[in-house]
Amino acid sequence: MLELDAEHVHNLSKRVKELSGDDVTHCIQCGKCSGGCTVAPDMEEIPSRIMRFIQLNMKERALTSSMVWTCSSCLTCTARCPEGIDIAKVMNVLRMMCLAEGYTPKEKHIHVFNRLFIDMIKKYGRVYELGLMVQNNMMAMTPFRDIGLLPAILKKRKIGLLPHKVKALGEVKELFKKGQTFYKRMKVEGWK
């Protein structure tokens, strides 16, 4: 049972607004985001319900939902929202909050993939596909998954054997530095 009290009822929506700039209290629960969501049909919670969790300060439910991690950031919801809420961005913020607050991500594999992807960007400034595939398979304990596809992919030159770096790697690093400070501040500041 959800117990609402006057002091805290707006906490989560305020926090999300601080972090994303989007006011989720504007959500009128029309469900247009959920109707167009590419992953919602396979989820327990739909995007509009996540927005409702934020409106009613249901932190636990919002941060531990698998929807938050499964969201593929296709931005269909953002493009269609009649209230102009950037829902995909809000989902992103929820992912950050989930990690900063020490919750276990509901979808571990997706979290691991995200982690590896980001690390790769940090290292090369772009994706090293083969490395990402191998590392992801290792982390997921399925080392030989999709291995049969490799010769064909290599033959068609879809991916390279060796990693490539972007020229302006310094600028990419700079971006990451900014992100880190934001994330650290998020952890330190805290909120109720």
């Binding site: 959800l2 117990e3 609402l4 009290d5 509009s48």
Partner: peptide
Amino acid sequence: ADTLAGESVKIN
């Protein structure tokens, strides 16, 4: 209850 969140609600 709040049927939008699918949750029963109690308020003092």
